[in-house]
């Protein structure tokens, strides 16, 4: 391997500007998409447990469609197909918008992640043994009380690792939006590599962004998981 490192290259313009813009876009996009996805995901998770069969059907259909189509394909659908399906004048207005890639990415990421969050909520609740419900009912608790005092505290702890990794996934998934022209951090690194052939430096900058972001979330979540662990299962030592 024969490679000369040139780290200061990253600090030169226009490279530094690209990196900063990329980091800013990645963080902005993932935070916004995460917010939308969380609200929508909990909503869909809730209607999937509702008594109405129609609502349950809508919730399940949503989850199955958005979870089973790869995110990249969904982004392409929103970017290439969706504007073509709009009425003519709406389509022209859409194309005139500033930052269409960003909005498209935001829609795609939010709707995709909402399905995953809804699913985590469902599987968290259904991972609870039936006996817990029966035991709670037999002590005279109502359904609402059972959920509040027995199921939710248990399910919450079971769901923490899954929800935590979901928060991290959206940061990483935002990298896919480079394919539709969002200048996020992976795209910025790719651009720098293409111009300078300094792949190691460029990709290190991108990797560092993801790793610092996820490391802080992982450390926090690891602490939370440990603090709330359920005795009797092999835990982290």
């Amino acid at each position: 391997m024969n490679y000369e490192f040139d780290w200061p290259l990253l600090l030169e313009e226009p490279n530094w500007g690209w990196v900063i813009e990329g980091v800013a876009n990645t963080i902005q996009l993932s935070l916004m998409a995460w917010g939308f996805a969380l609200v929508l995901g909990v909503l869909i998770g809730a209607i999937r447990m509702s008594k109405s069969r129609l609502l349950r059907f809508i919730g399940t259909t949503y989850v199955e469609i958005f979870r089973n189509i790869p995110l990249l394909v969904q982004l392409f659908l929103w970017f290439f197909v969706f504007p073509l399906l709009l009425p003519d004048d709406l389509m022209r207005a859409w194309n005139r918008l500033d930052g269409v890639p960003f909005f498209t990415a935001l829609i795609g990421l939010s709707l995709f992640t909402a399905a995953r969050i809804a699913e985590q909520i469902r599987s968290g609740i259904s991972s609870i043994p039936k006996g817990q419900f029966l035991a709670a009912y037999s002590t005279g608790l109502t359904e609402v009380q059972t959920f509040r005092h027995v199921i939710i505290p248990y399910a919450f702890r079971v769901m923490i690792p899954a929800i935590a990794s979901e928060f991290l996934t959206i940061f990483k998934n935002s990298a896919l939006t480079l394919t539709i022209g969002v200048a996020e951090v992976t795209g910025a690194a790719k651009t720098i590599e293409a111009y300078t052939f300094r792949g190691i430096e460029a990709y290190s900058a991108a990797s560092l962004t993801y790793m610092l972001t996820t490391a802080s979330v992982v450390i926090f979540m690891g602490w939370l998981e440990h603090a709330l662990r359920i005795p009797g299962l092999i835990g982290k030592r």
């Binding site: 991290l168 690194a189 792949g199």
Partner: peptide, 23 residues
């Protein structure tokens, strides 16, 4: 595990496309 899980797949693919010919 943590190194790979904290990077997006697309970036890992870019990394390997740069590193494999180099190595």
């Amino acid at each position: 595990v943590n190194l790979l899980r904290s990077n997006p797949l697309i970036l890992i693919v870019f990394w390997f496309f740069f590193l494999v010919p180099l190595i």
